[in-house]
Lab assay of single mutants.
Amino acid sequence: CHSECLGNCSQPDDPTKCVACRNFYLDGRCVETCPPPYYHFQDWRCVNFSFCQDLHHKCKNSRRQGCHQYVIHNNKCIPECPSGYTMNSSNLLCTPCLGPCPKVCHLLEGEKTIDSVTSAQELRGCTVINGSLIINIRGGNNLAAELEANLGLIEEISGYLKIRRSYALVSLSFFRKLRLIRGETLEIGNYSFYALDNQNLRQLWDWSKHNLTITQGKLFFHYNPKLCLSEIHKMEEVSGTKGRQERNDIALKTNGDQASCENELLKFSYIRTSFDKILLRWEPYWPPDFRDLLGFMLFYKEAPYQNVTEFDGQDACGSNSWTVVDIDPPLRSNDPKSQNHPGWLMRGLKPWTQYAIFVKTLVTFSDERRTYGAKSDIIYVQTDATNPSVPLDPISVSNSSSQIILKWKPPSDPNGNITHYLVFWERQAEDSELFELDYCLKGLKLPSRTWSPPFESEDSQKHNQSEYEDSAGECCSCPKTDSQILKELEESSFRKTFEDYLHNVVFVPRKT
């Protein structure tokens, strides 16, 4: 048989008469490798580009789960590009990614509803959504962080984005990388972005840091009482949809009607710091009717980097990364020049730590249904340095008659930039024990000054392991946590139920 035959053949030295091919099969003959313009397919066939392209389009058009959109890589027609490569849609070739590779997620039936953290986790790592997304989240724990972890990498949506009755959302900033909504599939009414009845939605994105392009379709905003109209108009300008909307697409009466839409800028007039305090004062603000001013709200939190936005980490279910302080308005003076500047002394802060701070007014709604208010920009203030805590785990070892090696770990709280350490030492008198000992005694162990690591005695271990207080009263049991108490109650309830079950099964009433 021919060298490319495997198993047997019907005619000697003829690659077209093989029972099976050793390498690849091409047009009725066995070959060692697939010549151009053919590609290896499933490690035994040679196919042309049209064959591989037909497989790709067949799966793409069917949208069946589990099928493969075949691509070409290293002269092979394979189910998908290997790690580190992405497909070129024009020629199906796998090309190296520039940075992290995109991950295209194809949605069944063309859309997916995100109504819980669990459903959001199914899209973790996706960068391109081939379909439409509907966000409908009523509640949950730590929602802002969970949504950002699972949806934060999405850069492109081919269909539309719909935010509907998501009472738990305060902001859409968890879509931190969303840059493009194509609108290839539109919501009824030709809408590519749809926001309806979101009672706590206050911000779409921080438009000073976020760009969003909507290729096709219109915007729809109705019944978002805490979303200011200025935020919607800003989205029109940034996304390129200005002029597409009709009169009733953006409701003037049901958007922002319960919001404090600040239209003035508060400026800080005085800032002073110490290692654990920050004193702030800002310019006074009074609405047209000074009785509408209820006070100020001061927001602050630790910020290692200057990239904080107002609604980071917030949701309507209680999660809030900001510390909020309510401040009463100052006494009002008739003389504008003698107006008191409101302020606040922030206490209990960490030394040498940068804080993000902003302040906003708290006002009631005027009778004319106009909203007044003022808010400052987010500023960054760093507390002063102070003395560091003591170095940890000092170790001293003498390696000769004239040297001592000293080692330690950095302090747990540096409280500033540590530039150097101060080492103090003092000579001590020799131990009298060394002169009084009889060095001729056998088995004498000389006193040693070398360091030995501390260890816990058996008594201390027994005390720590004991669940009861000892007789001397030195140790006591740790208080039980809520989960331990709940577990004990469940076990007790189970024992009672099981005992009742045994009584009912074992003891049967005697027939009379």
Rank of each mutant, 00 (worst) to 15 (best):
N198A: 04
Q258I: 01
T273M: 13
G131C: 01
D206C: 10
K209D: 03
V359M: 04
Y191V: 11
F174Q: 02
H222A: 08
A303T: 10
F296D: 04
P391V: 11
D115Q: 15
E246H: 05
S208F: 11
T118G: 15
S192T: 04
Q258S: 09
K267Q: 09
D115V: 15
W344P: 02
T309A: 09
N142T: 13
Y355F: 13
S398L: 03
P225V: 04
S321D: 04
K253E: 13
N399D: 15
P411D: 01
I134P: 00
T215R: 13
L392S: 12
E283I: 06
F299M: 07
N263R: 12
S132A: 03
A374V: 02
Y167R: 06
I405R: 10
A144L: 15
K350A: 11
S333A: 09
D377L: 03
G110Q: 06
E237Q: 05
A303F: 14
N399S: 11
L204M: 14
R281M: 10
T383L: 02
Q258N: 05
R369A: 04
A303V: 15
T323P: 05
I135A: 05
S401M: 02
W352F: 08
L143Q: 07
S389T: 14
Y285P: 00
L204I: 08
G240N: 04
W352T: 04
N263I: 08
C228S: 01
R124P: 05
R244C: 09
W322S: 07
L201C: 04
T383M: 04
R179F: 10
L204K: 04
R176A: 07
Y355A: 03
R176F: 05
Q306E: 12
L331N: 13
A259Q: 04
L153G: 14
T383Y: 02
E155R: 10
L143P: 04
R370V: 03
W282T: 04
F220Q: 10
H210R: 09
D393C: 15
K209T: 12
R272V: 12
V324M: 07
A303L: 10
K234V: 06
I181V: 12
I137S: 05
D257F: 13
F268R: 02
E184I: 10
Y194N: 15
S171M: 08
K337L: 12
A303W: 09
T254G: 14
D326P: 09
E264A: 03
Q382D: 03
L362A: 03
K350H: 05
R281S: 11
K407V: 05
V104K: 03
S274E: 11
G110D: 12
T361K: 00
H222S: 08
W205C: 06
Q245P: 13
D289M: 03
K234Q: 11
N387L: 08
L204D: 03
T254C: 09
P351Q: 03
F175I: 13
S376M: 10
L107Y: 12
